[in-house]
Amino acid sequence: MTMRLPLAVLKHVMLIALSLCMIYPILWLLLGSFKANNEIFTVSSFWPSEFIWSNYAKGWSAVPGFTFANFFLNSMMISLLVVAGSIISCCLVAFPFARMTFPLKRLWFSVLLGTLMLPGQVLLIPRYVIFSDIGWINTYLPLVVPAFLATNVFFVYLMIQFMRGIPRELDEAAIVDGCGPFRTFLLILLPNCKPVIYTVAIFSFLWSWDDYFEQLLYLNEVRKFTVQLALQMFVDNAAQIQWGSLFAMSILSILPPMLVFFFAQKHFVEGVATSGIK
């Protein structure tokens, strides 16, 4: 696809304008992370009157007894496990919905979507009681194990929808070659699902990284806390809030998911014309 020059220019002008709107608030946050506490909200200048780098150092050790390194490691471990769990379990569960016929398929599919529809807030306490009964409180298990059991139905449905887009001739050919469902799944579907697997990886990483409420409920010891929990510790209902340090750590906290996105994205956009299903 070649584009005529004026069209290409127009496209870039549009993209740059849009980028500015998108990025302005983030820049405000970034510059705010260098401002003095009494300047962020009272002085309307966009640029800091003086760059205060110590906001970062102070923020890094703002939780007594620990540094953010500890929280980053914890978050990283949880998120990577959730990514692994989501990919494995969701690929498995999506396959029969997309490709096989089995009794009660429609019912199960409705149940699958149905579990998305009840607001999680009323499930918080019953779920907490279950995890408490099996002794999982104050461990990472309630945050990680459900991912391996495809509890995040969003990804399952995403997978189903993608697998349905893969031409059936491919698996038919495989079946003719004598492949059973397992090998069809491994040899045909999975390789063709690469874009969506990366999509699931990006989302599951980001969502478990950004999750706050579950982590808050299940983790008690500060040593086990995550980045989001640590960020929340800047905000007390009465004490001083160090906005500069809060912004600084907020900026740092979006780096890991940003890097994940940056490196994963090429897998779902590389050369449209050359890829596709061969």
Binding site: S89, L92, F95, P96, M100, T101, L149, A150, P181
Partner: peptide
């Protein structure tokens, strides 16, 4: 049966 094996985690 195979379908249900795939569904097992969920």
């Amino acid at each position: 049966s195979i379908a249900y094996i795939f569904l097992l985690p969920w």
